[in-house]
């Protein structure tokens, strides 16, 4: 069988020659770059031009834009409190970027930018960098109290390293969660699609059976739509939770 379910994750140049070099590395215009540009352009145009002033009753597109705005605003307020709203543009961008990349990746034949570990790792790194910088700006060196939970001293010997490790692994968990979800879903779709072709080409009764993986594709496709939204939501809400810790340490509110 000539089909490889991993082929869809290959970052391929659309223009054969590199555009330019940065620090000795060739920069190409790739299928992934195209998808990211399309997704970002769509998101920016949609969120800007669907909204018009003076509409008491919004149009469908406008109410979608307003709902996503308020969805993110409520997400920040409920996890990080009202002072977390300074990060609204940042969290809104993260949510929108991941959501649109995920959904544009669902178009058959389109590349999924978020199925690349380096993309999700970079996004997670931006989040964790924001968390650390915010923590030091708000609390100064008191930010290290984040690693010291309220516990007897002897337990702290055990707990502090655990807290530090758990803080550092957030970078990995945040990035791998999104990457693995997108990778697994799209791989599964490609595998079932190859089953349809293989069974169809086999002839006889097997050709009739090829309808079964076809239904699986429909079902998994619907599931992947849910995952595409859910992972964007999870990424955004974890960002909020981490930012809340940077702002308020271990206080609850």
């Amino acid at each position: 069988m000539a089909m490889n379910p991993m082929e869809q994750f290959e970052v391929k140049p659309i223009l054969e020659h590199p555009l330019f070099q940065i620090a000795g590395h060739d920069i190409f215009f790739t299928n992934q770059a195209l998808l990211m540009c399309v997704a970002v352009a769509a998101a920016a145009l949609f969120l800007t031009f669907s909204v018009t002033r003076g509409r008491l009753v919004p149009t469908r597109l406008q109410s979608m834009a307003e709902v996503s705005y308020e969805f993110v605003a409520n997400m920040i307020k409920s996890t990080a409190g009202d002072d977390g709203m300074v990060f609204f543009p940042f969290v809104f961008t993260i949510f929108t970027f991941v959501l649109f990349c995920n959904f544009f990746g669902m178009i058959p034949g389109a590349f999924t930018p978020t199925s690349q570990i380096i993309v999700t790792l970079a996004l997670a790194a931006v989040v964790m960098l924001t968390v650390v910088v915010t923590g030091f700006i708000v609390h100064g060196l008191g930010f290290f109290k984040l690693f010291v939970p309220k516990a007897p001293f002897l337990l702290l010997i055990l707990l502090v390293p655990i807290e530090i490790i758990s803080f550092l692994t957030r970078l990995v968990s945040l990035s791998v969660r999104l990457f693995a979800n997108m990778l697994a879903g799209h791989t599964m779709l490609a595998v079932f699609a190859s089953f349809v072709i293989a069974l169809g080409a086999a002839g006889g009764i097997l050709s009739l059976l090829s309808i079964t993986p076809m239904f699986m594709i429909v079902f998994i496709g619907a599931l992947e739509m849910l995952v595409a939204f859910l992972q964007a939501y999870v990424f955004a809400i974890l960002t909020c939770i981490y930012l809340n810790e940077a702002l308020h340490l271990h206080e609850h509110h």
């Binding site: 970052v11 940065i22 620090a23 590395h25 060739d26 920069i27 190409f28 790739t30 992934q32 770059a33 990211m36 540009c37 930018p113 690349q116 380096i118 993309v119 970079a122 996004l123």
Partner: peptide, 8 residues
Amino acid sequence: FPTQLFWL
């Protein structure tokens, strides 16, 4: 990776 990071 460099290309991906650049476009991201």
